[in-house]
């Protein structure tokens, strides 16, 4: 018996991986590595709730919310950059990429100010278990953000030069930036809000 297969619809044909597939492998691996660390943090936190709460009280939730909204806005901006580049609106795409980088730098400045405040108050990497996790997670995330700033710089360079424009590279770089964003979303919930 023979079976007939329906031809793919236009929508199905149009479906494609945003950016390079290799970047998605990196996204999934990074997510698992961070999730493993989040699991370790939550395991110890659940065992020493009182000690964690006492140290966590020194964090400013409002500052964490501002950090999060700054990064979410940067993600929105880089998503617009991808759409503008796809539509051939390159000046707008370059502007969006520059806004993304500026918001990334603002996030970093806020983080450095927050670290300085904690260190001045005597809360350091070795002052308690909560702050060990806090500094480890926020510094590792900041390193990812610095790499993200280089990646956004590549986007600006590509889009500004008509000979270098490559939509797949723009999408790949944006995918990395969004990963930095969603990792922060998780870090914020675990460090600033979890009880």
């Amino acid at each position: 018996m023979t079976t007939t297969q329906a031809p793919p619809t236009e929508a199905a044909k149009a479906r494609r991986v945003p950016g390079q597939p290799d970047m998605w492998v990196l996204v999934l691996v990074e997510s698992l590595i961070f999730t493993s660390y989040f699991g370790v943090y939550l395991f110890y936190r659940a065992q020493h709730e009182a000690a964690f709460l006492q140290e966590q009280a020194h964090l400013d939730l409002w500052l964490g919310i501002v950090d999060t909204i700054v990064l979410l806005t940067s993600s929105w901006s880089v998503a617009r950059c991808v759409q503008n580049a796809r539509a051939g609106r390159y000046p707008a795409a370059v502007r969006d990429a520059c806004v993304t980088a500026a918001l990334g730098l603002l996030f970093l400045a806020l983080k450095i100010a927050e670290w300085a405040g904690h260190i001045t108050a005597g809360h350091t990497l070795t002052s308690g278990e909560f702050f060990t996790h806090y500094f480890f997670l926020t510094v590792i995330h900041a390193v990812h953000l610095l790499i993200g700033l280089v990646v956004v710089g590549i986007v600006v360079r590509q889009l500004a030069d008509p000979r270098r424009r490559d939509q797949q590279v723009v999408e790949t770089c944006a995918t990395y930036w969004h990963t930095v964003d969603f990792l922060w979303v998780l870090i914020f919930a675990l460090l600033y809000v979890a009880r």
């Binding site: 993600s75 969004h178 964003d181 969603f182 979303v185 998780l186 675990l190």
Partner: peptide, 18 residues
């Protein structure tokens, strides 16, 4: 906090990461 964060991660993946 964890569930809301994961809802946000999914929205970022679906909408921003296309």
């Amino acid at each position: 906090a964890i569930v809301l964060a994961l809802v946000k991660v999914r929205i970022i993946m679906r909408e921003f990461m296309e």
